[in-house]
Design a protein around this nucleic acid. Structure first.
Lengths: 329, 329
DNA sequence: AGACAATGTGAAACCGGTTTTAGATCTCTT
DNA sequence: AAGAGATCTAAAACCGGTTTCACATTGTCT
């Protein structure tokens, strides 16, 4: 591998001057600049990122920490983030917290001593306050309550989305609408429940029926049994996320309960799985890929401009009506 | 951040000695070793990986390059690889080649000038020969024809798997079995086709019916129309991969063709999607997560022992019979 | 007792960049 | 014409580790 000193020697200048043209920073005469660029071309010189990182306390790397990359929400997010990162000359480090005993907040140490430039946090398993305390690393927090004043948050209008979902079920004529909610340490799970409750409570004649779930397919399956035991007359189901909705559809099909004729179903997230199962599932769609892109963009903004004010971005969701809630009668 | 010189000063030794205990390498008296370790503890010193990287031409990072992380095969692979990497003190860099105009083999440059220690290649978009030529980076190649003599290959017994699949369809009584194959630049697509053909040609009375596909859900949907136009009497379908099989199931359901009663379906890969749709899909299951783990393990082996012989590992597939091929008559 | 290997340690060089410092020129002002 | 800036450049220091080298000490074997 060629070094900057090789280039310098060959161009008859000092390494410092080469560095100046490399970084387009400081004074360099047009003549030397041209000469150096020519030599760089000819030698096929590429600056060593590790050496550069050591000197600049930088790594040109972003981290994306998710709880479980196997959850179909995250690959789409990751793809968006990786795309933008790559476009801007950054690499993306992937962290998967699920199944790791995060003794001593393992990942935080790595972020620090590898000079990771910024991190996108999409898991509850990272202690972002600790991270913020130890490093002032630029952070983007996804879909979570954010206690860090110095981090950018990206979320969707969850409350409005779940209101829309519930009202949609009402509008197609459902009489008794239940909600399967996710783990309540999750801010979004709470808000989705809240939205459902808001709508139900506006209608005094309606009964609130809620069942706990865990945001997994199996959780959805389990919730259905639980639900039907106590409320066999439910005819509309707003499920806390799409993964559970998939489980719900499966279980209802197994029980020969027709969707949407007997029970209409609406999920939340907009993962592509909703289009894969039959019936296809009505859902509140989030722009997941877009969120990944946006997260990386904002992160890079903050890296380049540390004094930028930390926005909190809220994206719109969209009701996508599919077979699982189509009662065209 | 504390540096090694801080530790040295505080322990009354030279940085070199601290480095020796850090790396457990070279002679250090028990007494100083204990003293240094105590100081490290107390100061909470963590060696800077970037500096270490520069000195050792190392990064403690593996790269995983996939074509599209959104394809459900890859997150599972990534999870396995990340897990093992993390356990061994490595980070995992994710590269997604799809949608990138890989001008100048972008990713190869990154791998080189970030001192990435090794790479798992699971895409056709990386020119592994070029990579091998420029760097002698340890590589593990997944499920592809490997032209590099110095790389470890991991694949499954694709030929046997597809033979098993085809024979399974025969065994449940299918009379006319078709195959939807994937893009033939993909080695596995070729082998899956080959396995199908081997079995069919063993039975002179059977007709070979093959239709091209592209390994996507939509590709599966398209292939069904194509197939049924020319061969409405097909009653068994070995689909080149699960993603297409999902599309097939969907399209058959739309056409009110019953699975398995009218047409039995068998896929290949073992992605969890096969368990999500109904009917659940019979498939040739590969140990995907395991493959990810194994890839990382082998890669780390090679990094630690550059002269290790480059194995070629072949894993067994398993026929998993589900609803889509259950003809219990 | 002398030779030789094994053990233990710090100074200095090194990895490959960036940044500071200091000095040289050149160009305006007044 | 002298002083103030702006432009340009190389040498040297620096980022935070590792490794080589040189030298001392100790132990072991004839």
């Amino acid at each position: 591998m060629k070094t900057i000193r090789d280039v310098a020697k060959s161009a008859g200048v000092s390494p410092a001057t080469v560095s100046r043209v490399l970084n387009n920073k400081g004074y360099v005469s047009e003549e030397k600049k041209a000469r150096i660029e020519k030599v760089i071309q000819e030698m096929g010189f590429e600056p060593n990122q590790v050496a550069r990182g050591l000197a600049k306390k930088t790594s040109n790397t972003l981290a994306l920490i998710v709880s479980d990359i196997t959850n179909p929400f995250f690959p789409e997010l990751a793809k968006g983030a990786e795309h933008v990162a790559h476009l801007n000359g950054y690499s993306l480090m992937l962290g998967n917290t699920m199944g790791v005993d995060s003794e001593d907040n393992d990942y935080i140490k790595i972020l620090m001593n590898k000079y990771i430039d910024g991190v996108i946090i999409a898991t509850h398993d990272i202690d972002s306050e600790l991270l913020e305390k130890h490093t002032k690393m630029p952070m983007v927090i996804l879909e979570m309550e954010n206690k860090i004043e110095n981090a950018c948050t990206i979320k969707v209008d969850t409350l409005q989305g779940s209101i829309t979902a519930t009202e949609h079920l009402i509008s197609i004529g459902c009489k008794k609408i239940a909600h399967i909610y996710g783990p309540l340490y999750d801010q979004t799970a709470k808000e989705r429940l809240q939205g459902y409750q808001n709508v139900i409570h506006e209608h005094p004649e309606r009964e609130e029926v809620i069942v706990p779930g865990d945001f997994t397919i199996d959780g959805g399956i389990a919730a259905v049994s639980q639900l039907l035991k106590d409320h066999p007359d439910v005819d509309g189901l707003f499920v806390g996320n799409d993964l559970m909705a998939v489980g719900v559809i499966k279980e209802l099909s197994r029980l020969h309960i027709r969707v949407p004729e007997d029970i209409a179903v609406c999920g939340f997230d907009g993962i592509y799985l909703t289009k894969v199962v039959s019936p296809e599932i009505t859902t509140i769609e989030q722009p997941i890929y877009k969120m990944g892109e946006l997260a990386a963009e904002k992160l890079i903004d903050r890296i380049n401009n540390p004094y930028m004010n930390n926005e909190s971005i809220e994206l719109k969701t969209k009701l996508v009506i599919r077979q699982s809630s189509k009662k065209d009668n």
